[in-house]
Amino acid sequence: MNIVVCVKQVPDTATERKLKSDDNTLDRDAADGVINELCEYAVEEALRLKEAHGGEVTVLTMGPAKASDTIRKALAMGADKAVHLVDDALHGSDALGTSHALAQTLKKIGFDLVVLGSESTDARTGVLAAMLAERLGVPQLTFANRVEIAGKGSISIQRVTDYGYDRVEASLPAVVSVVEKINEPRYPSFKGIMAAKKKPVEKLGVADAEIDASQVGLANSWSEVADFAVAPPRVAGTVVKDEGDGGVKAADFLASKKFV
């Protein structure tokens, strides 16, 4: 089975994330780049499926040159090879542009199963997997906390919902996105880290992947940021120590705010 896992580099949420004032896009240089956490779960799931059913795992990342760190991390976990979509023309693409670029690349490299994280920590749109399914014309199996490949070309997942979950069935090829409760991502071993250095990483530009240049990049986005402002920080209020009456005091506060 040919599994492609889409992995994104995001600014570390532990550092302050900023927008650039010149073009209102994410300042990717200001913060350390790390692998989007949910993408680690996607890589892990892809590896488990490969271990159970055979095949190959390819990492696909669209991002600037420094995203190669993130690719190495996924390779160190055990993926076989990678495709790095890197081109200045891709800078500032919105979800529609990104999904076009990734879909074109996926068509080019081929796949039986595409695995994504259900959401990234920077964009937080949570729509990319659905968009890829739409563009590729394959079943959408998103927000999975469990994935099973049943037999010849059929797949089922548990899709997390507000009331519990839906059991969903489809046939391959398909697009899956995973939530963090699906597995526990492995740490790369020393051997894995060494091996990753020798694994093939193919770099593709817009033309190589047959991406329509009028569909990607900041200037071609379907939406724009008019302006932005840093939100005023919250100010700390009263803090009291519990002297056996902490609950009563808290109730007094709630009453003063008319909650009780």
């Binding site: 700390a236 209020g237 009263t238 803090v239 009291v240 519990d242 902490g246 009563v248 808290a250 506060f253």
Partner: peptide, 18 residues
């Protein structure tokens, strides 16, 4: 740092009392 009101103590005492 972001609470409008905070109580320092054991929640197992405070929450049931509240």
């Amino acid at each position: 740092e972001l609470a409008d009101y905070g109580v320092v103590g054991d929640l197992h005492q405070i929450v049931p009392q509240l």
